[in-house]
Simulated scan of single mutants.
Amino acid sequence: MHTSISFALLSLFSLATSQVHEPTELRLMHRVVHPDLPVTPWAELGIVTVPSFESISPTGSHASISLAESLRDDLAEFAEAVNPNMQGAMYHVAIELPELEGSVSSTKACLLPSSTDANIVIHFSAKGEPYAIDYAVSPVPRDGICPATSTGSYPAHTNTSVVLKSPRMAPLPELRIPPPLTPEGEPVVPIPEKSFVQKYWIYMVVVLGALLISGPADDSPSGDKGGK
């Protein structure tokens, strides 16, 4: 009886462990909005294949994305609903979560027609749950001003890179050694360091005494041999 229970628990643990380490799929959504126009409904942008959380690096791990088959049709509908060159038009990319809409990344819609690449960064919590997304396109003018273009369509970025980031570990605090205390509980005052004279005065006295005892050196006699 105990053997069967242990085997069942081990099977459940192995199943749960395998599910944690197996790759999962994360669905991304997108839409366009304008303050003066009706909000377009969310459409599927693509599905990101997420590896095991243990393999995601804080500095970033690359992942693959499969763009939705209906992407070009959805982008055409976006262009009919909101022209990207309209002042105030925004392009949204979000993570689809089970219970809430998820984090949304907003980009100026006017930057998309002249862009060629898209970059997506997905942030994960310490529990391995996605909670934030960053979406950017390139090239983008340095001043961020929308470039002048007559193109009124949203491009389907087939060259889209995805990077996954896990949380960074906070640096450990540096603990200082507490100062020594006297029996009364007061900090011990360090003894001031002696000066050069205080350290070597005895040697200076010995040298000075030796010089005084020896006295001045005797001058060699100079006989006046020429006067004899």
Rank of each mutant, 00 (worst) to 15 (best):
Y91R: 09
T59D: 14
A16P: 00
A132R: 04
Q87G: 06
M90V: 04
K108S: 12
E129A: 15
I133Y: 00
P113D: 13
D117K: 14
G152T: 13
T158Y: 13
I95S: 09
A8F: 08
I202T: 10
K194E: 11
V197F: 12
T182A: 06
L111H: 13
M29V: 09
L26A: 02
P187Y: 12
L100V: 11
A136K: 09
L112Y: 02
P23D: 08
E184I: 04
N85A: 14
N83W: 00
V104R: 07
S103K: 04
V121T: 06
P171E: 13
S18V: 09
E22S: 15
S114H: 05
D224I: 07
E44I: 15
Y154R: 03
R168Q: 09
T182I: 02
A170G: 09
A63G: 02
E193T: 12
A148Y: 00
Y203A: 14
P171K: 08
L26V: 01
G60R: 03
A63S: 05
L212C: 13
R168H: 06
G144E: 10
A43M: 10
D117C: 06
T160Y: 03
V104N: 07
S106C: 01
F196K: 11
L28D: 08
A210F: 06
A63F: 01
E184H: 07
F7S: 14
L175A: 13
F78N: 11
A8W: 03
E80K: 13
T158E: 12
L45I: 03
A148H: 05
P23N: 08
I202Q: 10
T3M: 14
A109I: 07
Y91N: 07
P171I: 11
A94V: 08
P190Y: 07
P190F: 10
D36F: 06
P84N: 07
P167D: 07
G144K: 05
G46L: 09
V140C: 05
S14C: 14
V189Y: 00
R176Y: 03
S70M: 12
R72T: 13
F53E: 05
P216Q: 12
V50T: 01
A156T: 02
I213P: 01
V137D: 03
V205P: 00
A118M: 13
S61D: 06
L9N: 05
D73A: 14
S161D: 10
D73K: 08
I202C: 05
S106G: 03
F7D: 14
W42Q: 11
